[in-house]
Amino acid sequence: MAIDVGILINLGFYLSIAIVFAILALGFNLQWGYTGLFNAGIAGFFLIGAYTCAIAITAPAPPVPGGLPGHLGGFSLPFPVGAALAMLAAGGTAALVAIPTLRLRADYLAIATIAFAEIARIFTINLETITGGTIGILLIPRPVDYGPGQPFLNMATIVGIGGAILLILLLFLRFVAESPWGRVLRATRDDEEATMALGKNTFRYKLQAFALGGAIMGLAGALFAVTLVYLEPVGSFAPAVTFSVWVMVIVGGAGNLRGAILGAFLIYGMEWLSVQLKDFAPEGVKDTIFFIRLMIIGVLLILLVLFRPEGILREKKRTLR
């Protein structure tokens, strides 16, 4: 029985993180799939969301022996408030990053956003009094905590909360995509000049879509913080996160909501499996399995771009009848 619970908890961990990635993929899908804005700084918005939420909801840090630097915090706000703050912070930063670059070609935006993400990571690692430096933020409270004796219930609750958020987001984005607003976004992506000629202020629409996408990534960060219950800046928010989300959306199909979610579950499934299989791998491969996984992601990126740029589920054809 104990083994069964262990497997279930492991599976729950997979589900909860896959949900976080699915939300990230939905945010990126709104920015790139619908609006054509190529965001290369997903990890940065994710980071801002995660740290904003973590700082907002943690209790005052108890004095830790060993002289940990500690972090800004002690507000003990409830999780929904923390998540809302995370969305505000990430969305606001997204708007700020986008303003100078949205009028320029797509690759300027890519460079500016990846630069922003790296700067955000450097600041997070070094601003110890605010973010806890390389140690990060520990003891983040769960939204509902059954105590340390009930790991399964805790995990199930997180998966439930994440699943609910994902479902609401999916419905919301479906509504948005079919709305006149979403139509303008797709029109901007397909032919910006024609959309401008129709009297739409495409800059404003692009800015709104980018900020909304950033806010969704911030929400993913907030969920990530309460799922892991700790944050560390070096590995969790590396550029590899951004590249993984690209693969997820491209695999699933850009411009298709179900595709983005499917891609997230598939690609994170691969990552999770590589962790699970590490113990069974032969001696020579054991230490390199993570590098091989990243190489596979690279190969996937190239092959998909070359041979199936529309992904598994292609975007719905919307034609006038």
Binding site: F38, L294, M295, G298, L301, V305
Partner: peptide
Amino acid sequence: VAPLVASVGVGLIIQNGIRA
């Protein structure tokens, strides 16, 4: 954007190939 994504793939392969 398409060649940019492909170039990231190339980068990932080179970097992690070296690590491996």
